[in-house]
Amino acid sequence: MIELRGLTRTFGERIAVDNLDLRVESGEICALIGTSGCGKSTTLKMINRLIEPTAGQVLINGEDVRRQPPEQLRRRIGYAIQGVGLFPHRTVYDNIAAVPRLLGWTRLQIDDRVRELLELLKMAFDTFAHQYPHRLSGGEQQRIGVARALAARPELMLMDEPFGALDPLTRERLQGELKQIQRLLGITIILVTHDMEEAIRLADRIAVMDGGRLLQVGTPLELLRHPREGFVSQLVGGEERALRLLSLRTIAELMQPAELFALTDDTPSIAAGSSLRDALARQLWQRAPVLRVVDAEGKTCGAIGLEQMLNAGDGN
């Protein structure tokens, strides 16, 4: 569990972060969202002491981060940034091995860990391990950046707009992979972003910041349904909120028994695990008011019509 208590940082006259209180539970992804200059990156950097707070404290599992030297603290915390910052003069292998080497792991341990991580990120060891970073695509570089951050098995990972520089397709794929990995490893992630879609897709809880202050914290659903007036409700989007809400819920939650509809062989089908947003898109695209819902084995397990959709996207 990470606790920020009365965290404040000023740069000269300017207050970058203003008396911020936040609790992030172990094993959850918390997104810090806001426009640029709102203090979200500064907040992140105060957690691993890249910036020291003017006032307040950061507790990790109840222990003040200032109780240990910053270098030792940082080696226990994963850190991934937008620019990736892979070491250009070192191979992928040596990049991933950086923190384990700082921690004095044996060669065998390091070798096992690098192989394990490349496999986790679906990158073939023989193809990638001995490449230099400039030979990799942007998406591959960021994967290695994440692998490097995870190398020493941190319980906490800090990410500063890690996918900001990627094209939308790659970004979405990496977001999916990150979520899977996070669930698999059970680590805590604090993610800085300015992209509401990203926050909704990834985060268990979203903390909205503006002008150095925390405006609202809640699950994506809470935020979309009951955004505070002003900045937060602007950020979650006016009309778009409906679609965002749909994207948070699965078809399985809302589908009806198949017998209620006259399904034919021509009725398009969709997987039960897809989001309602996907279902709506399919309905519009194929001009089908009703979709057949199928389970993982491809068997019909229900159906969903436009009417159910209309009831799900109104914010209640």
């Binding site: 937008q82 910052g85 950086a98 923190v99 700082l102």
Partner: peptide, 10 residues
């Protein structure tokens, strides 16, 4: 970015 990443990893 390289320097930030290096410092950030300890």
């Amino acid at each position: 970015n390289v320097l930030l990443a290096a410092r950030g990893m300890g």
